[in-house]
Design a protein around this nucleic acid. Structure first.
Lengths: 260, 260
DNA sequence: CGGAATAAATTGTCCGACAATCCCATTTTG
DNA sequence: CAAAATGGGATTGTCGGACAATTTATTCCG
């Protein structure tokens, strides 16, 4: 079971690339490792359910337990994993319920952000937004799911910045991090990218026309549909045979049992 | 400057209270210290702007640097303080801008939660809500600001639980933690409690009547007014003389300079 | 007085050690 | 044979010390 070790080893980044007189070694080891592991979790290199032990982190990155532990604390605080004392951290597995909650919240926040964006946007901002749209469409045409998702995230940050709402950006980023991997997976479903891009076009259209209500509606539809797609994908993934009969209940979310 | 040290020392909790055979020593030192410091920050015992050094934490709680550092990582991840490498953690000082953002986001989330609550609430839940309302009003009559705020937080958690939305509860808790102290301060302004309680009555009325739109409207008004109150209080606090002329701008929020 | 050199304080990182707890498998017991 | 007990290995919890890197405070000099 050192598939994880191999992954971690690959993540190892050389301490410094610019040997010539370059200032700003401002990033400390801890941050580097944290970023690397975070990225690995978010992009799916480290799968949900994986247990991250101190030793693996130490050996994988060549760091001491001090740092490994601090990184684990940070990951846990960001809810990228579930931590239990004396047990350790395991990369978060999302339940349908949780996913639905996240998308519901995202819908509201994105709505807020779009409103703020259109309130504050200059013509240039609108142009930039249109550009983001094109970049997404291009990436989609190239079937580059990663690029699509990354561009979307960047677009979100951009809108939040124009709307001048840092808190929204922070929360949004955190929520996105938690479902990022699922998004990537879901986009493998045939037709999913096309549907998504249709939504993107609608959003950009609303923004370009400066039609706030249209943009908001488009965003809500888009986010909602994305959530649905992810949930659909989760179904197909975890229960290809057994017809699920749960799902309507008060749901103290039962992680879909995965019988070998 | 060891006023902080004294505070920290007081926070020190005895390692164990139940000497008889009591299971569940499940809480590790780290969590205890984290909770204590967090509480201290949230309730204002440790004022914003204060620098939390490792040494203070170590001596204040009788712990090793290992734990002190981990606690600091957690506090920073929760945004309860701003951390800079090689500098340390200082308890977050909120700008007007940030506060406005937080309240804006809170408004949306609370709206969502109330909707979810009324969707799922049984008659008993409604009764419990009414009870929460009474508890708040009682606490207000006793002029017990802390109790008011705590009950409100508990009420929020309750609604989120009924609405079965854990993510919302998490985010809400995090946002509240960041402004809790300001809320307490703002409620010292004369008439503030009364205004607040008026809002509470409206919210409870809407809930009791199961009138979703009324409840939502009441919540939005309430949260918005609370935010306004906090902002007003911040004004009065930081710039009692100089007429502020900033405030409308794109605002890369300038923390109101506090000249000695 | 201003600025440069110096000292002190603080954080970053590593190491080693040992206790506490959990996990798992084997063995013992009913 | 199943269930409970046990025992060892792995993992986390916590401590202490050490030294480098960096920031912050102090001192000294032109």
């Amino acid at each position: 079971m050192d598939g994880l070790s191999r992954i971690l080893a690959q993540l190892r980044t050389p301490a410094v690339i610019p040997p010539p007189a370059a200032r700003v070694p401002r990033q400390v080891e801890r941050e580097r490792v944290f970023d690397a592991v975070r990225r690995a979790i978010v992009d799916g290199s480290i799968l949900p359910g994986t247990r991250l032990t101190e030793r693996e982190l130490c050996e994988g990155f060549g760091i001491s337990r001090t740092i490994a532990r601090e990184v684990i604390r940070m990951l846990a605080a960001e809810k990228l994993g579930d931590f239990e004392p004396h047990v350790g951290l395991r990369v978060a597995e999302l339940t349908r319920k949780r996913v639905r909650e996240i998308y519901q919240l995202r819908t509201e926040i994105e709505t807020m952000v779009v409103r703020g964006f259109l309130d504050a946007a200059t013509e240039v901002d609108i142009d930039v937004a249109r550009d983001f749209g094109n970049r997404m469409l291009t990436a989609a045409r190239c079937d580059d799911r990663t690029a699509v998702v990354e561009t979307m995230a960047e677009f979100e940050r951009f809108m939040a910045r124009v709307a001048d709402n840092q808190i929204a950006a922070e929360v949004l980023a955190q929520l996105n991090a938690r479902v990022n991997m699922l998004r990537l997976m879901a986009m493998r479903e045939p037709g999913q990218i096309e549907t998504g891009m249709q939504g993107v076009r609608a959003v950009i259209a609303g923004i370009t026309a400066r039609d706030t209500e249209a943009a908001v509606a488009a965003v809500r539809t888009f986010v909602h549909r994305s959530g649905e797609a992810v949930l659909r994908h989760m179904d197909r993934q975890t229960q290809p045979t057994i017809p699920p009969s749960q799902e309507g209940k008060k749901s103290h979310d039962t992680p879909p049992g995965r019988p070998a």
